[in-house]
């Protein structure tokens, strides 16, 4: 399925001149990587499904409960639906805003000539700096008497409680996350824009296409592989949101910014319900895989690969 992502295009390995197999040699080279893959990825993935069928405390004996964790999650725990709704809301807003802004900024930077690369790297900085440091300075800036509200006060505006007002807290998280993450897509889309031949745009111009027309009819289709890649990665990333609510709002006020991974973490390591936390983990896994599968099934229709 990964052949689909242009920047993740899987090439087929050529057969070497000697077609005889290298079974033992290959096993030796693959041993560390595949053992690690088995022990730290495959086994935990299966184990988390098994654990989700148990009432599993951190210390003490696990008790098999069948599908009870799942029935509780789906029918007996309103918080699950709240955190699912919050995470979906975050994912949709974050992904749409991220892609639109990243597309606008990368197009802008593309036309800035020699200044472009510098600013591209500047926008990339928060992607690399530790999320905890990023989140803490935003918490400082967004507190009631923080710099954002003192700035607004210069214009006579009494700023709201960005992090403790349930109407605004999620918006603040989205804004912080956009700042943190947008540089990633700016780079990917910038690379995509660099790959579009200017002759093509010149031809469109000579044929009488205006600026917007060239953007929507030439640039956007040519960019669709990069956009597809960004969409897949950004959606997956947005479902994993944890550090921002953990440090900025503690999931509050109430449950208004609680997310799947934060709720998973709390169930596992604050409420001592590792079984239930694993059921949540599998819910997350299934949702992310379903969304990714849907995207891949639609890509032929949406993505233009005749470069």
């Amino acid at each position: 399925m990964m052949t689909a992502i242009p920047t993740l295009a899987v090439k087929n390995a050529k057969k070497p001149a000697r077609v005889t197999g290298h079974g033992k040699l290959a096993a030796a080279y693959l041993a560390p990587g595949m053992l690690g893959f088995l022990i730290f990825i495959v086994v935990p993935l299966v184990a988390s499904l098994v654990i989700s069928l148990f009432d599993w405390p951190l210390f003490g004996t696990p008790k098999f409960v069948g599908l009870e964790n799942y029935t509780r999650m789906l029918t007996g725990d309103p918080v699950f639906w709240t955190v699912l709704g919050n995470t979906l809301f975050f994912a949709v807003c974050y992904t749409v805003l991220n892609l639109v802004l990243a597309l606008a900024v990368s197009t802008w930077l593309h036309n800035l000539g020699s200044w472009g690369p510098f600013f591209r790297v500047l926008f990339f900085v928060p992607v690399v700096t530790p999320m905890v440091a990023n989140a803490l300075v935003w918490r400082l800036m967004l507190t009631d008497d923080g710099v954002v509200n003192s700035f607004l006060a210069n214009f006579g505006i009494h700023g709201p409680s960005w992090l403790s007002n349930s109407q605004l807290a999620m918006g603040s998280l989205i804004a912080m996350s956009l700042w943190q993450g947008i540089g990633y897509n700016i780079i990917v889309l910038g690379a995509g824009l660099n790959g579009i031949s200017p002759n093509l745009l010149e031809a469109a111009r000579i044929d009488g296409a205006g600026g917007w027309q060239r953007f929507f009819r030439v640039v956007l289709p040519m960019l669709s592989p990069s956009l597809f890649f960004c969409t897949v990665m950004t959606i997956i990333g947005s479902f994993k949101v944890f550090t921002q609510p953990y440090l900025l709002t503690l999931g509050g006020p109430g449950e208004s910014t609680n997310t799947i991974v934060l709720y998973l973490y709390r169930n596992g390591f604050s409420f001592d319900k590792l079984g239930y936390a694993s059921a949540l983990a599998w819910a997350l896994f299934v949702i992310v895989m379903l969304i990714t599968a849907v995207q891949f099934s639609q890509q032929k229709r949406l993505v233009n690969y005749d470069n």
Binding site: I41, P44, L45, S48, L264, L274, S278, A281, L284, F285
Partner: peptide, 9 residues
């Protein structure tokens, strides 16, 4: 695959 799915096991 989100790594978050694997942290409990």
């Amino acid at each position: 695959l989100p790594q978050e799915v694997l942290v409990i096991p």
